[in-house]
């Protein structure tokens, strides 16, 4: 299992009020993304655990692109990967940020 940690400042705080959200499933070719609104300011942290070793550069490119496009400031994002392709990773990250803007249920 390879672990990666990527940290960047986003352009702004992530929209919405949901304290956390989970999207995706740990299944072959898929991944789960846990987003938590726990960081100060516009910092964004992404923690990745992946069984596919040696793809650090691709992960970095996908995540930097995501932070630039979606401005997920204040979010700590934790990923359990199960061999997802880069486009699936981008999709799940975008879904996650959108879910953080939805009303949380009690």
């Amino acid at each position: 299992m390879e672990t990666l940690f990527i940290q960047r400042d986003a352009a702004q705080r992530a929209p919405g009020k949901s304290p956390h959200a989970l999207v995706g499933v740990v299944a072959s070719g898929n991944l789960e993304v846990l987003l938590e609104r726990v960081l100060d300011g516009v910092r964004c942290e992404v923690h990745v655990k992946t069984p596919a070793a040696g793809f650090g550069e691709v992960w970095r490119a996908v995540i930097e692109d995501f932070i630039e496009r979606h401005a997920p400031g204040g979010l700590r994002i934790s990923i359990n990967d199960c061999g997802a392709r880069p486009d699936t990773v981008s999709l799940r990250l975008a879904q996650g940020v959108r879910l953080m803007t939805m009303e949380a249920s009690e």
Binding site: H20, V25, V26, L34, E36, P51, N80, S105, E106
Partner: peptide
């Protein structure tokens, strides 16, 4: 819906890492 011990609690399997297998939160 109100979840008990949800994903942010990170109650993951203590065994899967021994097999180098992915965990779910």
């Amino acid at each position: 819906f109100h979840e008990f011990l949800g994903p942010t609690a990170r109650a993951v399997s203590p065994h899967l890492a021994l097999f180098d297998l992915p965990e779910a939160f």
